[in-house]
């Protein structure tokens, strides 16, 4: 584990229902400053719902959430000022350029942002005059991260940012996320890719059917499993098909 800091996000016994469905069923976890915290789980596990409760987008049925010393349920407006959010499925206005969008989003926080600096952060400077519809999948996700950075947030929430991207674009995005963390941000990311969690996250919570069923740094989970006598049926080959693919097609991103 890298540097561990103070706790910036604390979720306790969070419950969220949609009618009869219990989407989040008593979830508790805390996230430390400057860590990349992963929530790993299959589709429908409740990852998005958990994030949206923290992001003040959904009323909570039970439990407490503290973020940066603020009570999320009571101080939604203040919380919004210090978080940066990439939603799983959301888009941006058409007809505005990336630069114009970033300036507009900055204004929503009362900030005058430098759009090119933000675009540099996600390696999209040359697209500053393009519109979101003209971007590839990977570029869209990177732009979405830039938009989440306009308010210099304390915590960033990224909901399945790499789903649907090709291997090169995923790797590129991992680089961006790691750099953002190295600049002092805390990142909460959801994914259903194990390799991604293993590569990126300092700690992961594995979620299924609304509950967290395990939480630890990825290598500790693997060590514990192995120590418990687990062996793969077939010994891992020294390379995977993805390695073959990347070796053949190269690491350079294709989407621009």
């Amino acid at each position: 584990m890298k540097q561990s800091g103070d706790i910036v996000l604390e979720v306790r016994e969070l419950v969220k229902r949609y009618g009869d469905t219990v989407a989040v069923d008593g979830v508790s976890f805390s996230v430390r400053a400057r860590e990349i915290f992963g929530i790993l789980g299959p589709n429908g596990a409740g990852k998005t719902t958990t994030l949206e409760c923290i992001e003040t987008l959904r009323p909570v049925d039970a439990g407490t959430i503290f973020l940066g010393g603020l009570n999320v349920r009571a101080q939604a407006q203040e919380v919004k000022r210090i978080i940066g959010v990439q939603l799983q499925s959301s888009s941006f206005f058409d007809k505005l350029s990336l630069s114009e969008l970033l300036v507009l989003f900055g204004e929503m926080y009362g900030r005058h942002v430098d759009p090119l600096a933000l675009l540099d952060e996600v390696e999209l400077r040359d697209k500053s005059r393009s519109q979101v519809v003209q971007l590839s999948g990977g570029q869209k996700q990177r732009f979405s991260i830039a938009a989440a950075l306009v308010n210099d947030p304390v915590v960033m929430f990224l909901d399945e940012p790499t789903t649907g991207l090709d291997p090169q674009a995923r790797r590129h995005l991992w680089g961006v996320i790691k750099r953002i963390r190295s600049e002092g941000k805390t990142v909460v990311i959801t994914t259903h890719y194990m390799d991604e969690a293993e590569e990126l996250c300092d700690r992961v919570a594995i979620m299924d059917a609304g509950k967290i069923i395990a939480m630890a740094p990825p290598h500790e989970m693997i060590d514990a499993l192995v120590a418990g006598g687990f062996r793969r049926e077939r010994v891992e080959r020294l390379a995977s098909l993805e390695d073959v693919f990347l070796n053949l097609t190269g690491h350079t991103i294709r989407d621009e």
Binding site: E55, T56, K80, I83, V85, S90, S91, M108
Partner: peptide, 13 residues
């Protein structure tokens, strides 16, 4: 439908 409004509501506006 396109989630553009949801994105706005996580900002303080």
């Amino acid at each position: 439908k396109r989630g553009i409004l949801r994105r706005l509501w996580v900002t303080p506006i």
